[in-house]
Structure formats: structure tokens, C-alpha cells
Simulated assay, not measured.
Amino acid sequence: MIRLLSAGQYTDMPWKNGQGITREVCRYPQDGDYDWRISLATIREAGPFSAFPGYLRNISVLEGEGMFLTIDGQRSPLIAPFQALGFNGASTVSCEIIGGPLLDFNVIYREAEIRTTVEWSGAKEWLYEGGLRVLFNAGPALRVTVGGEPYTLNHYDSLLVDEPGNLVIHAEHSEARLARITLFSR
């Protein structure tokens, strides 16, 4: 399966703690409790994060100057744009944003069922190592070739690929910012 997800198709969902809205990029399964979810969220002010016991989380800043997270009483280094930070979903987490509202990118996955990698990169070839691969474009439009088939990813579009074959990412701009997520079943 290869599926292109347009940013205009993402679904708005309320935060568990009721303090904001998440735009859900994709999740599995679609209905009920999920094993994994990828989403975007605007953080307008400092405050607590929702708890997700049984899940691990990975967060990155897409827009804005950055943020600090305090996780179980320990303050993180500054999370600058396009740096991924992983933490336990059961942890007590609060955030302090720098310089105003920001947009973040979240990967959350069931610890007992899934293992994942999240990496930010530019244009390159992505070799197949198994699992579901999700490519999220946080930069200008670019082309991706999967098994010789071309796809165009506009700003904040995603491509899901769960079949063998290398992905070749053709970015014509030096501002290419791509989240490469691999999800493996345990």
C-alpha cells in the first residue's frame, strides 16, 4: 500500500486535557484506541501535556522558536525546530514555549506493540528496512519516487508506504525538511 495524505484531509481532534486541538495526520487503527498516531498541534501558551499511559511519544517543533519540556520534574534542553525528543506518555509533562505560539509534530505509539524511529532530514534515498514508512513534508513541495512511481508532497503532506522498495526524495530547495518515521510491530 502506498497512500498520499493531503494536509487538507487531516482531522481536528480535541486534546485529552481539553486545552487545545490536534490535527490528526494518520493513525492505526482508524477507529477506537490506536496503536500509533501522527499529529500536529498548535501550542499557544505554557501548560501541561495530556498523559498517555502505555504509550511512548516523540515531539518536534515545526513552526516557532522552540520549547522546553519539563518531564517528571526534569527540564529538557531547548527543543529547537526539527529536533525530535522522545519521552514516556505516562510521564508528567509541561511545556514552556519560546517567543510565542508554535506548531509541533507528534508521534505517539503503544509501547508494547510498536517500536519506531523518527528522523528529520533533507533529500536522500530511504532504503527499505521493513515496517511502515511515513514521510511527512515540512518544507516546500517536493517529489518522491517509490519503485519508479512519482508522488508530489506539498507542504505538510504525508506519504505512507508499507511495501518493499526504496524511496528517493528529490528536493529542489535547500529548505527541505522531512520527518522520516518507521513503525515496526513488535
Rank of each mutant, 00 (worst) to 15 (best):
Glu125Cys: 05
Arg75Asp: 03
Tyr128His: 15
Ala41Asp: 07
Ile43Ala: 08
Glu125Lys: 13
Thr116Cys: 11
Tyr34Met: 06
Ser50Val: 01
Thr92Glu: 13
Asp104Asn: 14
Tyr109His: 12
Leu62Asp: 03
Met1His: 12
Met67Trp: 07
Leu153Phe: 03
Gly47His: 11
Cys26Ala: 15
Thr117Phe: 00
Val168Lys: 13
Ala84His: 00
Ser6Phe: 07
Tyr34Gly: 04
Val161Gln: 06
His170Pro: 01
Asp33Asn: 12
Phe68Glu: 00
Thr145Asp: 15
Gly89Val: 05
Ala171Arg: 01
Ala7Ser: 15
Val168Phe: 12
Ile71Tyr: 04
Glu113Arg: 15
Leu102Asn: 02
Cys95Ile: 05
Glu119Tyr: 09
Gly20Gln: 11
Leu160Gln: 10
Thr70Asn: 09
Gly8Gln: 09
Tyr10Asn: 05
Gly122Ile: 02
Gly54Tyr: 10
Arg3Pro: 00
Ala90Val: 04
Arg180Asp: 12
Gln9Phe: 01
Arg44Gly: 07
Gln74Trp: 01
Ala171Ile: 05
Ala123Tyr: 02
Gly20Pro: 03
Trp36Gly: 08
Ser39Gln: 08
Ser50Ala: 05
Gln83Leu: 13
Asn154Glu: 15
Leu78Asp: 04
Leu102Arg: 09
Leu159Thr: 08
Ala41Tyr: 09
Ile59Arg: 05
Arg44Ala: 14
Pro14Glu: 02
Ile79Asp: 06
Cys95Val: 13
Ile181Ala: 07
Gly99Lys: 00
Arg110Gly: 07
Gly86Tyr: 00
Thr182Lys: 06
Gly122Tyr: 09
Arg44Val: 14
Trp15Ser: 14
Ser158Met: 04
Ser39Leu: 00
Arg143Met: 11
Asn17Tyr: 00
Arg75Thr: 10
Thr92His: 12
Thr145Trp: 14
Asp157Cys: 06
Arg75Trp: 08
Pro140Tyr: 10
Gly165Cys: 01
Gly86Glu: 15
Gln9Asn: 15
Ser60His: 03
Gly64Ser: 08
Phe68Gln: 08
Asn137Arg: 10
Phe87Arg: 00
Ala7Trp: 10
Asp35Ala: 13
Thr152Met: 13
Gln30His: 05
Glu172Met: 08
Tyr34Asn: 04
Tyr10Pro: 01
Glu149Cys: 06
Glu24Tyr: 05
Ile108Asp: 03
Asn154Trp: 09
Asn17Ile: 09
Gly64Met: 04
Val93Ser: 12
Leu178Gln: 02
Pro150Met: 07
Val25Tyr: 03
Ile181Leu: 12
Ile169Gln: 03
Glu175Cys: 10
Val144Asn: 04
Thr92Arg: 14
Val168Asp: 11
Thr22Asp: 08
Val61His: 11
Gly100Thr: 06
Pro48Val: 09
Tyr156Trp: 12
Gly130Lys: 01
Leu5Gly: 08
